[in-house]
Design a protein around this nucleic acid. Structure first.
Lengths: 218, 218
DNA sequence: TTATATACATACCGCCACGTATATATTCAA
DNA sequence: TTGAATATATACGTGGCGGTATGTATATAA
């Protein structure tokens, strides 16, 4: 019941975060009790308060996980300040989406943060993170589209910034519907189809249904 | 303190709903107290319990308002089972969006239902309404695109159902970003631009920037 | 006019969950 | 070996909030 080894303590911490993920998902962040979180993790509220201070601390620690995922996408899209070609760009997004779809933990986490949390008062710091992550992703999108425009990959009537906002809204929309439907449809399929249409519009080249690869290599 | 007239009772009811709208927005549905709602409305919890039974009843009554708004859009899009041309279609959506943007009450309501509520356990009925409304809207979209396809207004590579899901995701995404940003940008402008690109892609006709009206009359 | 239903206000009760304080058992460093 | 820091469990106090029960004044119908 007391400090075993440092590693075991870390395992307790992880167990608590995993438990919080599930309990927040089931009860909602506001209605979830720390006691239930602790019991699901196989310990008591003492451990929660030791590791996270209070409920907000626990929530923010959990939120950190989502932040890491988002950053992962951002880095994948812009490995070294250099943007990839549009065709490759779409593929990277799809890989991230597919990973999300097949990782129950990520889905739980995203559901908690998007659908089971009332961003108000003390939750404000998390909302700020969300906003910054949104801006960061949109910025990466925009930079990629700007470089694509310079390379002549963009149909002339598209503005890079507008394309970025458009794409971002599209992704947020698909994700929101997917989470709301309780993953009732194949997210990958939806997004694949959506991206296909979007990118072909972007490039001004009609999509080729015959082609085996997902995107025309514009 | 007691039954004045029937009309005054209805006014109390409306005042309570308006208060709930604001208090739920500020505190989140779960953390909001009925006492604060009542005080904001200028009465006590007695009135709340009389009119709505309990907290869930109050919430569902408020939710009804949003449902009405959504139905308004649905009816506007398909007045008499007949769908309009795509160009007009986009305009109707924009009118609804503009109305939402300039109606603080509607924005509050939508924010509460989309960003200040944890849909869990007893909130399930509201989530069901949300899902049904989503399906209903998507269905209207799909029907319109089907008829558009029959009229030859759709580029051949678009499937009506896919176009409907695409459009729906796009709208949900724009709205979500707008609400999350606390209405920091012009929703109408964003959506106008987005719809313009989307519908020109749909019809396979590049958008004409020179034209004064928003959409090419395809 | 009076009884009854209505439209609230007030009072009371009970729970629950959070935070804190404290106890306790290990580990680790000296 | 021992003290201090660590990693929990347990115990305690308490504030808030929701539901219900009840009080009460007014409208309305008979």
């Amino acid at each position: 019941m007391a400090r075993r080894t440092k590693q075991e303590a870390d395992e307790t911490r992880e167990a608590l975060l995993n438990a919080a993920e599930r309990v927040f998902l089931k009860r909602g962040v506001a209605r979830a009790s720390l006691d239930e979180v602790a019991r699901v993790a196989g310990c008591t509220r003492g451990a929660v308060h030791w590791h996270f201070g209070d409920k907000l601390g626990l929530f923010l620690a959990l939120d950190e996980r989502l932040f890491l995922f988002q950053d992962e996408l951002r880095q994948a899209l812009m490995a070294d300040g250099e943007c990839m070609k549009l065709s490759r760009f779409a593929e990277v997004i799809l890989v991230c989406i597919a990973r999300l779809e097949h990782d129950e933990g990520r889905r739980r986490l995203l559901t908690v943060m998007w659908q089971r949390c009332e961003y108000v008062d003390e939750m404000a710091p998390a909302l700020e993170r969300r906003r910054r992550a949104d801006v960061a992703i949109s910025d990466v999108f925009r930079q990629c589209f700007e470089q694509a425009m310079e390379r002549g990959e963009l149909a002339p009537y598209w503005q890079p910034s507008q394309a970025a906002l458009f794409l971002h809204a599209l992704m947020v929309g698909f994700l929101t519907e997917w989470l709301r439907s309780d993953a009732a449809f194949s997210l990958s399929d939806q997004v694949r189809g959506g991206l296909k249409m979007f990118f072909s519009c972007l490039s001004g080249i009609p999509p080729s249904n015959a082609q085996p690869t997902v995107f025309a290599t514009a």
